[in-house]
Design a protein around this nucleic acid. Structure first.
Lengths: 115, 115
DNA sequence: ATGCTACTTAGACAGACTTCAAACCAAGGG
DNA sequence: CCCTTGGTTTGAAGTCTGTCTAAGTAGCAT
């Protein structure tokens, strides 16, 4: 059930990213490169139970429901979150593999690449 | 010499990001959320000696020099790289603290937040 | 000085992004 | 069956972004 950690790329300073890896990672990073989406992702991830209802998320922002819905869709399309409807409400949760992939990209630079 | 790891924020799934932290992080992430800039950062960081001349970077892309210069400026303004002129050439290097900060944000989600 | 090479700045333009209002779909309750 | 509540989709307006050409600055060599 728990997914394998997909290690797409070496840390950013290890070796030059290929064109296709860069393109793929940029899609994920673009999704996260917005204050509202960052906070949404953080709120979903830190919510008790690991999932959050849209109704919990909307109230925090001075934004309309369609706007929040749009941002959630961007995050979902990028593969960072996953949504599910249960009865009246829709719940979102983080996709850990995606977040881990970003973490691996910016892994600590203690050892510079071998010259 | 080795810089202190500036731990601005808990990992994204630990606790909700504050409005200001999210805004600040989004600036950095926006800088990185572009295929060209990702590759530039990667090329600079993985270059022998930890620094790269602009002349080394320009040839790799099918883009004009002004465009590359623009992207480097975005990365520099976001604090991700630092540049220095030595004679005829300009050399850029990664700012490890900035990259580490992004790494910390997407730190592994092995333990979900305590409910 | 003059010219050449390396790089940056300024201005312009097409495309993408964020946001909202309005309309729409889904589920549950009279 | 209608109404209410929760979310999404659509369409449009304003803004931001990536790219180019043209022009400017910095250093080196004649």
């Amino acid at each position: 059930m728990t997914a394998v950690t997909i290690q797409c790329c070496a840390p950013i300073a290890r070796e030059p990213l290929s064109r296709s890896d860069a393109a793929e990672l940029a899609v994920m990073l673009k999704a996260v490169a917005d204050p509202v989406r960052l906070r949404l992702l953080s709120m979903i991830g830190s919510h008790p139970g690991g999932e959050a209802c849209v109704c919990d998320l909307t109230e925090t922002f001075d934004l309309t429901a369609p706007t929040i819905s749009h941002h959630l869709k961007v995050l979902r399309t990028a593969g960072l979150i996953d949504g599910e409807r249960r009865g009246t409400w829709v719940y979102y949760r983080i996709v850990p593999e995606a977040v881990n992939r970003l973490g691996a990209l910016f892994a600590p630079l203690t050892e510079p690449a071998l010259a």
